Amino acid sequence: MRSIEQIEKDITLTRMLAFGVYSLAMKKKKKVVSTVALLSCEYNGLEYTVALAGDKAPALYKKVFKILAK
């Protein structure tokens, strides 16, 4: 699970590699931190993925893994 903030840091690093020193002058987006939990499963030969975003996503993610660990 990765936060959107972590993904944006990767994008900033990519921007720095692509534009060098000029990337420092580029306008950046407002910092918004939210977490996304991705849950995937396969049922009847089809794969399903659900993206859940919000403040409770990390807690949900932990609960799902506790259930799966049993």
Rank of each mutant, 00 (worst) to 15 (best):
M1F: 02
R2T: 05
I4A: 12
I4S: 08
E5P: 02
E5G: 05
E5L: 02
Q6N: 05
I7R: 01
E8C: 00
E8L: 03
E8P: 00
K9V: 04
K9Q: 13
D10E: 14
I11Y: 13
I11V: 14
T12C: 01
T12G: 00
L13D: 07
L13N: 11
T14C: 06
R15W: 07
R15L: 07
M16C: 00
M16H: 10
L17A: 00
L17K: 11
F19P: 10
G20L: 09
G20W: 15
Y22N: 00
Y22V: 05
S23R: 00
S23G: 11
L24C: 03
L24D: 09
A25C: 11
M26Q: 15
M26T: 07
K28A: 04
K28T: 09
K28L: 03
K30Y: 11
V32H: 10
V32R: 13
V33I: 15
T35F: 03
V36C: 05
V36H: 08
A37V: 11
L38E: 12
L38Q: 14
L39S: 09
E42F: 03
Y43L: 01
Y43C: 00
N44Q: 14
E47T: 14
Y48C: 06
Y48M: 05
Y48V: 03
T49N: 10
V50L: 08
A51C: 12
A51K: 15
A51I: 06
A53V: 13
A53R: 15
G54T: 03
G54E: 01
G54I: 06
D55E: 15
D55C: 07
D55K: 12
P58G: 02
K62Y: 07
K63C: 03
K63P: 09
K63H: 13
V64A: 08
V64Y: 03
F65S: 00
K66V: 15
I67Y: 08
L68F: 08
L68M: 08
A69M: 05
A69Q: 08
A69C: 08
A69K: 05
